[in-house]
Protein backbone atom coordinates (compact mmCIF):
# COMPACT_ATOMS: atom_id res chain seq x y z
CA UNK A 1 0.00 0.00 0.00
CA UNK A 2 1.41 3.35 -0.99
CA UNK A 3 0.84 6.71 0.61
CA UNK A 4 0.75 10.32 -0.46
CA UNK A 5 3.23 12.47 1.39
CA UNK A 6 1.69 15.94 1.15
CA UNK A 7 3.50 19.08 2.29
CA UNK A 8 1.82 22.47 2.31
CA UNK A 9 4.23 24.67 0.44
CA UNK A 10 2.25 27.86 -0.07
CA UNK A 11 -0.04 29.58 2.37
CA UNK A 12 -3.79 29.59 1.89
CA UNK A 13 -4.22 33.17 3.11
CA UNK A 14 -6.59 35.06 0.84
CA UNK A 15 -7.87 31.99 -0.91
CA UNK A 16 -11.53 31.03 -1.14
CA UNK A 17 -13.23 29.25 1.71
CA UNK A 18 -13.62 26.22 -0.50
CA UNK A 19 -9.86 25.84 -0.99
CA UNK A 20 -9.16 26.33 2.70
CA UNK A 21 -11.77 23.71 3.43
CA UNK A 22 -9.94 21.21 1.24
CA UNK A 23 -6.68 21.93 3.11
CA UNK A 24 -8.45 21.49 6.42
CA UNK A 25 -9.85 18.18 5.19
CA UNK A 26 -6.35 17.07 4.30
CA UNK A 27 -5.22 18.07 7.80
CA UNK A 28 -2.88 20.84 6.66
CA UNK A 29 -2.90 23.85 8.96
CA UNK A 30 0.41 25.59 8.46
CA UNK A 31 3.09 25.89 5.84
CA UNK A 32 5.65 23.12 5.53
CA UNK A 33 3.43 20.80 7.52
CA UNK A 34 3.55 17.25 6.24
CA UNK A 35 0.70 14.74 6.31
CA UNK A 36 0.38 11.22 4.97
CA UNK A 37 -2.75 9.84 3.33
CA UNK A 38 -3.34 6.54 1.56
CA UNK A 39 -3.39 6.61 -2.21
CA UNK A 40 -7.04 6.64 -3.18
CA UNK A 41 -9.36 8.50 -5.51
CA UNK A 42 -10.69 10.71 -2.70
CA UNK A 43 -7.30 12.03 -1.70
CA UNK A 44 -6.16 12.31 -5.31
CA UNK A 45 -9.14 14.58 -6.01
CA UNK A 46 -8.42 16.68 -2.94
CA UNK A 47 -4.80 17.06 -3.98
CA UNK A 48 -5.94 18.12 -7.45
CA UNK A 49 -8.01 20.91 -5.86
CA UNK A 50 -4.96 22.36 -4.07
CA UNK A 51 -2.21 21.23 -6.44
CA UNK A 52 -0.79 24.76 -6.65
CA UNK A 53 -0.19 24.88 -2.89
CA UNK A 54 1.22 21.48 -1.98
CA UNK A 55 4.12 19.23 -2.89
CA UNK A 56 3.26 15.59 -3.18
CA UNK A 57 5.37 12.44 -3.12
CA UNK A 58 4.33 8.84 -3.22
CA UNK A 59 5.95 6.82 -0.45
CA UNK A 60 5.69 3.25 0.77
CA UNK A 61 4.95 3.88 4.44
CA UNK A 62 3.71 6.82 6.49
CA UNK A 63 5.92 8.48 9.08
CA UNK A 64 5.10 9.93 12.44
CA UNK A 65 5.60 13.61 13.19
CA UNK A 66 8.73 12.79 15.19
CA UNK A 67 10.22 10.87 12.27
CA UNK A 68 9.46 13.72 9.87
CA UNK A 69 11.17 16.12 12.27
CA UNK A 70 14.19 13.84 12.61
CA UNK A 71 14.66 13.99 8.84
CA UNK A 72 15.27 17.72 9.05
CA UNK A 73 17.73 17.59 11.93
CA UNK A 74 21.44 16.97 11.82
CA UNK A 75 23.01 14.02 13.53
CA UNK A 76 24.53 15.04 16.89
CA UNK A 77 27.92 13.85 15.68
CA UNK A 78 29.07 12.64 19.07
CA UNK A 79 28.24 10.09 21.69
CA UNK A 80 29.35 9.65 25.26
CA UNK A 81 31.83 6.83 25.53
CA UNK A 82 32.79 7.16 29.18
CA UNK A 83 31.44 9.30 31.96
CA UNK A 84 33.96 11.37 33.89
CA UNK A 85 32.94 9.75 37.17
CA UNK A 86 33.75 6.28 35.84
CA UNK A 87 37.19 7.41 34.70
CA UNK A 88 37.93 8.90 38.13
CA UNK A 89 36.71 5.76 39.88
CA UNK A 90 38.96 3.56 37.74
CA UNK A 91 41.97 5.69 38.61
CA UNK A 92 41.17 5.16 42.27
CA UNK A 93 40.97 8.85 43.01
CA UNK A 94 37.88 10.06 44.76
CA UNK A 95 37.63 13.14 42.63
CA UNK A 96 35.56 16.05 43.73
CA UNK A 97 31.98 15.71 42.66
CA UNK A 98 31.51 17.94 39.64
CA UNK A 99 27.89 18.69 40.24
Amino acid sequence: MSWFRITLHRSAIGLPERTRGVLAALGLRRRSQTVFHPVSQDFAGMIMKVKELVRVQEVDAPKTDAEVKAERQFAPGFWVEKRGKEVMARRGGGGRDMN
Binding site: F74, P76, F78, V80, E81, R83, M98
Partner: peptide
Amino acid sequence: IHGQPYLVTEGDSVRLPFKMPGVEPGDVLR
Protein backbone atom coordinates in the same frame (compact mmCIF):
# COMPACT_ATOMS: atom_id res chain seq x y z
CA ILE B 1 28.68 18.49 15.87
CA HIS B 2 24.99 19.17 15.32
CA GLY B 3 25.82 19.95 11.71
CA GLN B 4 28.46 22.59 12.53
CA PRO B 5 31.95 21.90 11.19
CA TYR B 6 35.06 22.21 13.37
CA LEU B 7 38.48 21.79 11.78
CA VAL B 8 40.70 20.42 14.54
CA THR B 9 43.90 18.52 15.12
CA GLU B 10 44.91 16.36 18.06
CA GLY B 11 45.45 18.38 21.22
CA ASP B 12 43.24 21.26 20.15
CA SER B 13 40.88 22.82 22.62
CA VAL B 14 37.46 23.58 21.20
CA ARG B 15 34.98 26.01 22.69
CA LEU B 16 31.59 24.92 21.45
CA PRO B 17 29.19 27.81 20.82
CA PHE B 18 26.69 26.25 23.25
CA LYS B 19 26.56 24.46 26.57
CA MET B 20 26.23 20.78 25.93
CA PRO B 21 23.49 19.64 28.27
CA GLY B 22 24.25 16.78 30.61
CA VAL B 23 27.98 16.40 30.09
CA GLU B 24 30.43 16.83 32.95
CA PRO B 25 34.16 17.51 32.98
CA GLY B 26 36.06 14.33 32.30
CA ASP B 27 33.49 12.78 30.02
CA VAL B 28 34.98 11.12 26.97
CA LEU B 29 33.06 11.90 23.78
CA ARG B 30 33.48 9.89 20.64
